[in-house]
Design a protein around this nucleic acid. Sequence first.
DNA 1: GCTTTTTGGTTGACTTTGTCAACAATACGC
DNA 2: GCGTATTGTTGACAAAGTCAACCAAAAAGC
Lengths: 147, 147
Amino acid sequence: MAPTTAQIDRFRRFSRFYTALLGLLDDRLLHSPASLAQGRILFEVGVEPDCTARDLGRRLDMDRGQLSRTLSGLERQGWLSRAPHPGDRRARRLRLTPAGRLLLTELERRSRDQVAGILAGLDNEQRERLDRAMADIEDLLSPPAAG
Amino acid sequence: MAPTTAQIDRFRRFSRFYTALLGLLDDRLLHSPASLAQGRILFEVGVEPDCTARDLGRRLDMDRGQLSRTLSGLERQGWLSRAPHPGDRRARRLRLTPAGRLLLTELERRSRDQVAGILAGLDNEQRERLDRAMADIEDLLSPPAAG
DNA sequence: GCTTTTTGGTTGACTTTGTCAACAATACGC
DNA sequence: GCGTATTGTTGACAAAGTCAACCAAAAAGC
């Protein structure tokens, strides 16, 4: 019932591997007007408009203080708006401005291009294998495994 | 020949997923005497004694300045030694002290426990599926795909 | 209802990380 | 040798992340 040493080692090895890969991928944001944290927020708000800072904190695991400041920055730069939240006057509903949507589109385009570049090195059979492997991992580690 | 939108989306989705997971995993170091950067260095030097700061910079993708300071910190805390490098008097060969090895052992134990905790939620068939998926991804993305 | 406790968010003070450029010492190419 | 590239250190910063205090609003307890 207990996992084997080899299984544990494989997991840790993979985590190191993917950490390094993510380090490379995140460089896409270095030459953009948005920081990494800002990019992640733009993405989340793009996916779910009218969410709150609380939601973002949960999903991105960010400190409230840092979040508040980063959101102020995004607002100051005209990419995001914070409007009163109907039903909870403490909270603010977050939404991208048109400029924010434009920026997000651009960031996504770069990200997709970069991934496309990686996938270009694989043939279609390999891509499908990769796709299945990623789906498997998400599936296996999703529900209760976050402890 | 070009990757499909679905393949690109899956890849990006997985990257977000694993970023979040790594965020949880890295918390193991928060309650330890070593910082995350220190931990990564301890691990690398543990795997390859007598390596140099240059090697670490390559493998961990860290700035030289930051690395130099972090190494000073590790030395100051008695976990690492920097001795003259035979054959290159600019470089220093890095090595864990006995205390450093002890700390590394402890950090590794925690990391393994944590991974074991995650794997405990899976039966053996699932663990083998996970193992295969991780091996697949590493295999597919390793050689030239890092661009 | 009124009080107490929680929650969402902001702010200030601070530490840690990361970045950039300058520099000294050494190694390397030719 | 001489110019160039490399290794590591340092200083000056900028950015990111942490912690605790605080206010206003909401939720819970009774």
